[in-house]
């Protein structure tokens, strides 16, 4: 049974990127990872906006750290998953897995693939 609010696809991408990047999860890295996973160019602004929304929902937490010379000394905001975020992501992945299983079992393309 679902216990948390369901996540949108972009939110799932962001949370997955934050999880994958571990200690190196800050704006640009998350953006690059999301572009890589989605296989298309994304909007950097929407990454920040979604991270802000996820933080307000209590799924991620952030801390600010100094930036290097490649950023002109501009600070970086590092994000990390909170337990609620891990739970929400796990539930989303489980739902996606169930959808996928049903799709391949009963869907038109699934039956074609089975042949």
């Amino acid at each position: 049974m679902k216990l948390t609010e369901s996540l949108g696809q972009f939110e799932q991408l962001i949370l997955t990127a934050v999880m994958a990047l571990k200690d190196n999860a800050y704006g640009m890295q998350i953006y690059s990872k999301v572009c890589e996973m989605a296989d298309r160019e994304m909007n950097l602004g929407s990454v920040y906006v979604t991270l802000d929304r996820l933080q307000k929902k209590g799924y991620v937490t952030s801390k600010v750290a100094g930036g290097g010379p490649e950023r002109g000394g501009k600070p970086r905001r590092f994000y990390s998953l909170r337990p609620a975020g891990v739970q929400a992501l796990t539930e989303s992945v489980e739902t996606a897995t169930r959808i996928s299983e049903t799709f391949w079992r009963f869907g038109k393309w699934g039956s074609q693939r089975a042949k």
């Binding site: 704006g27 602004g45 920040y48 950023r71 600070p75």
Partner: peptide, 8 residues
């Protein structure tokens, strides 16, 4: 943050 990312 955005300015830094765009520069990087």
């Amino acid at each position: 943050f955005i300015a830094g990312d765009l520069q990087a």
